Simulated scan of single mutants.
Amino acid sequence: MSTATETAIGEAKGTLTPVGLPHLERLEHLEHLRGLPPGPGARVGALPGLPPFARSGFAGGLRREAGRRGGVEPVDLHRMYRGE
């Protein structure tokens, strides 16, 4: 059993169709949140990951853009339940 801890700032979408580039501004918002200074007394290690979650997956354009940005890893139901 691993004792590693990973910090993430994410957002979940429950749409019936794959999430596409119109939701790109949400990735930009998550990047903004990641860049805010920590609160008083907070211990900060590595920057948190930015995993957007989507029930119906992601369109190719959004996947490509996420791959271009560091720390952004889209998570759909398949990956969430199977870990792939």
Rank of each mutant, 00 (worst) to 15 (best):
P40Y: 04
G35M: 11
T7S: 09
A8K: 12
G14I: 00
R43W: 06
E6T: 15
G60R: 15
E25G: 07
A8H: 14
E84G: 00
L77N: 05
R68Q: 11
V19F: 05
G70K: 02
T7C: 10
R82G: 03
L24V: 06
G10F: 13
A59Q: 08
V44Q: 07
G49S: 12
T3H: 12
S56H: 09
R63D: 11
L30R: 03
V72C: 03
G57M: 11
G60E: 14
R69S: 03
P38C: 02
E73S: 09
V44D: 00
G14A: 10
A46E: 14
L47G: 02
L24P: 02
G41V: 00
H29R: 13
P37H: 05
T17H: 07
R43D: 06
L62S: 08
R34C: 09
L30C: 10
R55V: 15
A42M: 06
R34M: 06
E6V: 15
Y81N: 02
E65K: 07
H32P: 00
E84Y: 07
P37G: 09
G83D: 08
V19T: 15
L16Y: 07
G35L: 11
F58I: 05
R69N: 05
L77Y: 10
G20L: 10
L27M: 13
T17N: 06
A59N: 03
L47N: 01
G67R: 13
E6C: 13
R55W: 14
K13R: 10
T17C: 01
S56M: 04
A66W: 07
G71L: 14
P37W: 04
G35N: 15
D76C: 08
G71Q: 01
G14H: 08
V72A: 02
E28I: 12
T5S: 08
S56K: 06
R34I: 04
P22Y: 13
P22M: 10
A66E: 11
P18W: 09
M80P: 00
R63M: 12
A8Q: 09
G57T: 11
D76G: 07
G14N: 03
G45P: 04
R55P: 00
V72L: 07
M1E: 02
G35W: 00
M80R: 12
E28W: 09
R55F: 14
G45M: 03
G10T: 13
E65C: 00
H23T: 11
L16S: 14
G14E: 01
V19M: 09
G41W: 00
L77M: 10
G57P: 06
S56L: 02
P74W: 14
